[in-house]
Design a protein around this nucleic acid. Structure first.
Lengths: 204, 204
DNA sequence: CTTACAATGTGTACACCGTTTACATTAGGC
DNA sequence: GCCTAATGTAAACGGTGTACACATTGTAAG
């Protein structure tokens, strides 16, 4: 006897998240429709509404998971970075993550982010704080850790996007990695100048 | 007698582009539908297909126009930048453009760019070359202009996106401008180190 | 001037989508 | 065991991209 499919799914919330993530990886952002998610979860078209207010809420949930995975990926690249070299390795991992999960990365950053998504805001705050911590550990003497961290993040984030859009040479992972490293090192050697410039300008 | 609306529009191609651009600014990416464009142009729903193969083609056309406008905006910030200060002003203009036209900027960079759009590829190449030229003029002595230009672009591009996503303090234009300037100056002071680091690593 | 053709715009139709509403089923606490 | 809240279903509405057949018009050759 085949067991009749249960009326209640069991954990539809998680199933939707998983299905959405899969569809995103397979067909990109356009393929991520609520109906497709419902089909993949083996459930009626409107069932997901019991767990997600609307499509945006589901996308935000996927994005939030993406932030967590990104954090894990960075940690895996180096658990406790304390030197510029360590930090560069983390930067490479950041760009690598974007290139390996382009649709997810775009969902995380490229769509107008609705500020009401508590989960999403919290997850990005974690990333932000993580970058800040790394920079402080790698550069304990920096005058303005916050500014330096922001600059590093922006540089790496920009590299990731330009690569995603095919504006840079992404032929091989090695080429990408070397470029990221070079750019990050350039910034590091300028850390003192960063605060100097900011101070000079704010005092003028 | 009111003149009967002509069966032929006259310049529907341009009208669609204009309507699309308006809708993008008004309602964001979600509001940019082919049908809405047709309505705004006062034409049947399928008429735009005579001029644009599909929705993506129209979006690409809008994006291409955005690239041209961005180039103009940068030129307006400084027609012939030749010092680090000039270059920083251009960088500020870049971020400013993104913040003033968020939906357009996202259409230009945040969506999966189809490489078949000739117009789009050409327009981004112009931007890329433009950045390169500026960097060369401002730093004639740099060992690797290409690498430096890429790094500058990535940094500024990343700042633009992080601001767009509300991940940085964008409370006032001055705050944003100062942050961009500080970050760019930090990079400039490291220009020699950029090539040194790259050389050292490729030789090891 | 006519006539044929190519370019351009219209109308209809289909499948898909997000979302709302009313209803059905079931799990779990009293 | 029953009641209620949680969960899933079914039907329906308006919107969307797009293909197809058809209508209209500018234009150039005869």
């Amino acid at each position: 006897m085949s067991q009749a499919p249960a009326y209640h799914h069991g954990d539809l919330r998680a199933a939707c998240l998983r299905a959405a993530r899969e569809l995103l990886e397979e067909d990109g952002s356009a393929g991520l429709s609520l109906r497709a998610v419902a089909r993949r979860a083996g459930v009626s078209a409107t069932a997901p509404y019991r767990h997600y207010a609307d499509r945006d809420a589901l996308v935000s949930a996927v994005a939030a998971q993406g932030y967590r995975e990104l954090a894990e990926h960075l940690s895996a690249a180096h658990p406790a970075p304390s030197t510029p070299d360590d930090l560069a390795a983390v930067a490479v991992a950041y760009v690598q993550f974007a290139l390996e999960h382009p649709a997810l990365f775009r969902a995380m950053f490229a769509e107008p982010c609705d500020p009401t998504s508590e989960e999403r805001v919290a997850a990005t705050a974690v990333i932000s704080e993580y970058v800040r911590t790394i920079v402080r550990d790698a550069f304990p003497g920096a005058d303005d850790t916050g500014a330096l961290a922001t600059t590093v993040w922006a540089l790496v984030h920009g590299l990731a996007f330009l690569h995603l859009d095919g504006k840079l040479d992404s032929s091989t992972p090695e080429v990408v990695a070397e470029q990221v490293r070079a750019a990050v090192f350039a910034l590091f050697s300028a850390a003192p100048a960063l605060s100097r410039a900011a101070t000079a300008r704010s005092n003028q």
